[in-house]
Nucleic acid binder design. Structure first.
Length: 779
DNA sequence: GAGCACTGC
């Protein structure tokens, strides 16, 4: 039996769902699942899944039914490190391994629904690597130069939406799957992933030992591999994990997998590719249909029909009791305050499962900060004898240290932790010790509006599946309670799932991705949720303006070059413009793009008044009158020239150290790619002395950016507002910009977001004439 | 005067 987990211990906390699958190994399975224990409590995620008897052998009418696992299956004994056998055998998924193998022998696709802690991300690839169909095979294929013999298969790729999930899973599975003793010397020298059968590949970090059978990758990385290897010949199987998150990348990947599955497999020498789709939510009907339906039934010969099987396994969730408000709450802050203190007064601080802290989901930084003030004020009035509270904010723009505080157990035994978090705590990170969840029912979502070419960021009601996900956060370590600050009717009125990202973002990159991978008719490409025609049309037009597509909508050499760069297409276009001998500012442009694509703003917001003055004094040497882009350039150049203490340097200027490090990684990657593309010579290594760019050079750099962003320009109107050159909308310069409150003849902005107002971000001062020139030259 | 969250040879 698995050992009982020490509560509040540091094991694998805070790294998202994947790392928390450690729970699966260390936590004793609760005796009662929600479905059996909580007849009076509202349905939880667990119940929704287990109520269907756990398994459904929905065969989609395409295969013969079976009577459980085959008795002649000789591989039920684990391979790998015996140290982990016991823990692995205790996982809910373990007893299903023969079933899973059987289903995949008879089907092309298996849709597997299993909650966090079922062990699906770690175990399924290990179940499959010894299968006959999973072995590398030599086959003959027709190539350009006639018939050639190639090797197909042998590896399994497991995709993850986040880098940290891919790397932590790989480490975990390497420990389980590698035979101890093998390659010991390598392991001592280079770590556990230097040998053996498990590897990973994520941006900036690749560990793929010779002989790798299981490779954890980010979704984007597999898309990138598709560019070189359209038939995925290295792989016998692709496991798509966390498909319910529905990133643009996973949607595209699903389309390409569907094409490979329904194609004639000639590119793979007739060797089929197996696909396992894994999801945490039971709501997978449309995904099943997507893979089993062929677009045109008559056109597909019977032999190429894709057979899809479906399996559900129970997770390891403790029951969570849900309470809705009887009436809609007029004031969310007030409702939050009373709910938090009701929990705090009525509930004990500890029980046999450990700490009982509170996690509240709010929409954004502003709401979190004002709630924090209110709670702290109210906490002052708590009577003697009532435990204290400590309020910890948690959102993306917080510094690493501040985020870390929310994960640490409180030191004082008589204090309850209240974490006020954005959506970051829904999927990206896990706060340990949480047994109570308070859910405001809303989240800020980005939505792209193709007609306006801008996006909005507004608080909207969450989906049912998101509400269930939030609720589940209370039942990770023991039985929990969830308080929804909305009525049951409101819950029932919520959409089943969130709108997939591909329907919420600019499909510019998605369309170029397809074009570069040989999709001529992007409207015919199979997608689970195809974007509106207008969005695709807009993207095609935009790509044409950028020079990535020719008049006949075929991809150009510029377009092919653009997809080589891991940045959005307009930025890739700027890189290409900067590399021409006339402009010759590639290093500078790489520096700027690295800062911008490193994540959120590298400049942290300054919280208190006192630090503000100090930091602004330091920041003044970075500011440039040309605007934000040249300010970024100065910043990263000074950072790269700083040789003593870069962390200190960032702290003084209130820069996000994490993003600065990321920017330096991107800078290195882009420099490498540009050298490889013969766009420049190998640049000298850091640190280089800092010379501020002169105004002429700055103008050249901004003109290069106009090659990618000519549509995002505005001209100062007589009433001192900025009016966009295309569309004639009024935009305001965002307060975070160095050009906020200044009047310039014209501006170029890289981002255009509606929040409180129509804001232009990442703003530079330009001349109106440059806009005309940039459009002409694009011609 | 204001800041959901991820990601890419």
């Amino acid at each position: 039996m698995a050992k009982k987990r020490k509560n509040g211990a540091g094991d694998g906390i805070r790294i998202g769902d994947k790392f928390l699958s450690l729970d699966g190994y260390l936590t004793k399975k609760p005796k009662t699942d929600a479905s059996q224990s909580s007849s009076e409590s509202p349905p939880t995620n667990t119940e929704a899944i287990t109520s269907k008897e756990g398994v459904s052998a929905a065969n989609e009418g395409l295969l013969t039914s079976r009577n459980g696992p085959s008795s002649e299956d000789k591989r039920s004994k684990p391979i790998g490190n015996p140290k982990f056998f016991e823990a692995r055998q205790a996982l809910p998924l373990w007893s299903r391994q023969d079933d899973i193998r059987q289903r995949l022998r008879q089907n092309d696709v298996l849709v597997l629904v299993g909650e966090t802690g079922s062990g699906k991300s770690t175990q399924v690839p290990q179940f499959l690597i010894q299968e006959d169909w999973c072995q590398r095979k030599k086959v003959k294929v027709q190539g350009d130069g006639g018939t050639q013999e190639i090797a197909v298969g042998g590896m399994i790729a497991v995709t993850q939406p986040r880098r940290v999930a891919a790397t932590t899973l790989a480490h975990r599975v390497a420990k389980e799957a590698n035979i101890p003793g093998h390659g010991k010397k390598d392991a001592e020298r280079h770590g556990p992933l230097s040998h053996g059968i498990v590897g990973y590949s994520v941006r900036f970090d690749h560990r793929v030992p010779k002989g790798t059978k299981i490779k954890y990758v980010t979704e984007g990385m597999l898309l990138q591999e598709l560019l070189r290897d359209p038939h995925l010949r290295h792989y016998s199987a692709i496991i798509v994990d966390e498909i319910h998150e529905r990133s643009v990348d996973v949607d595209l990947l699903s389309g390409f997998l569907k094409q490979i599955l329904s194609g004639d497999k000639a590119g793979r020498g007739g060797i089929p590719l197996k696909v396992v789709i894994m999801s945490a939510t039971a709501n997978v009907g449309s995904i099943k249909n997507f893979f089993s339906e062929s677009g045109e039934p008559e056109a597909v010969p019977e032999a190429h029909k894709t057979s899809v099987d479906f399996l559900q396994v129970e997770g390891r969730q403790f029951p969570v009791e849900i309470t809705h408000t009887p009436k809609p709450v007029p004031d969310i802050q007030e409702a939050l305050l009373s709910t938090l203190f009701k929990i705090h007064k009525q509930e004990s601080l500890f029980d046999k499962h450990g700490r009982k802290d509170i996690l509240a989901f709010l929409t954004g930084q502003e709401e979190i900060e004002s709630a924090k003030r209110l709670i702290e004020e109210h906490a002052e009035t708590l009577p003697q004898g009532v435990p204290k509270v400590v309020v910890l904010p948690l959102f993306g723009q917080l510094s690493m240290e501040a985020q870390h505080k929310a994960f640490q157990p409180t030191k004082d035994k008589n204090t309850r932790k209240i974490v006020l978090a954005t959506n970051i705590a829904e999927t990206s990170v896990t706060v340990p010790g949480v047994r109570f969840v308070v859910d405001c029912g809303k989240a800020k979502v980005k939505q792209y509006r193709p007609r306006l070419g801008m996006e909005s960021l507004l608080a909207k009601p969450i989906s049912k599946s998101s509400a269930i996900q939030r609720t589940g956060r209370a039942g990770r370590e023991g039985p929990g309670k969830c308080f929804r600050l909305y009525t049951e009717e409101t819950y029932e009125s919520l959409e089943k799932t969130d709108l997939p990202e591909i329907l919420r973002t600019d499909v510019l990159n998605a369309v170029l991705t397809m074009k570069a991978r040989g999709i001529d008719d992007v409207l015919a490409f199979p997608l689970m949720d195809p974007p509106e025609f207008e969005s695709v049309e807009k993207a095609l037009l935009h790509l044409h303006i950028l020079g990535a597509l020719a008049d006949d909508v075929s991809i150009t050499d510029i377009g092919r070059k653009m997809v080589m760069f891991p940045v959005p297409p307009p930025y890739a276009r700027v890189l290409i413009a900067a590399a021409t001998p006339k402009n010759d500012c590639l290093l500078e442009v790489i520096d700027i793009i690295s800062c911008i694509t490193a994540g959120d703003d590298i400049f942290l917001q300054i919280q208190s008044e006192e630090t503000k003055e100090e930091a602004e004094e330091f920041r003044k040497e970075l500011w440039r009158r040309e605007g934000d882009l040249i300010t970024y350039l100065t910043t990263i150049q000074l950072y790269a020239a700083e040789n003593a203490d870069r962390v200190r340097w960032c702290k003084d200027r209130k820069l996000n150290t994490r993003n600065m490090k990321q920017a330096m990684n991107i800078r290195k990657q882009l420099r490498g790619l540009c050298v490889k593309q013969k766009m420049m010579e190998q640049p000298p290594a850091d640190p280089q002395p800092f010379y501020p760019v002169n105004p002429e050079k700055a103008a050249t750099i901004l003109k290069c950016f106009l090659k990618g962003f000519a549509l995002k320009t505005a001209i100062l109107a007589p009433d001192n507002s900025y009016v966009t050159a295309h569309g004639k909308h009024v935009v305001a310069v965002h307060p975070a910009s160095v050009l906020h409150g200044q009047k310039k003849e014209a501006i170029m902005f890289l981002e255009h977001v509606y929040t409180q107002k129509n804001y232009a971000k990442k703003v530079s001062a330009i001349e109106a004439q440059w806009i005309v020139e940039a459009m002409e030259r694009s011609g």
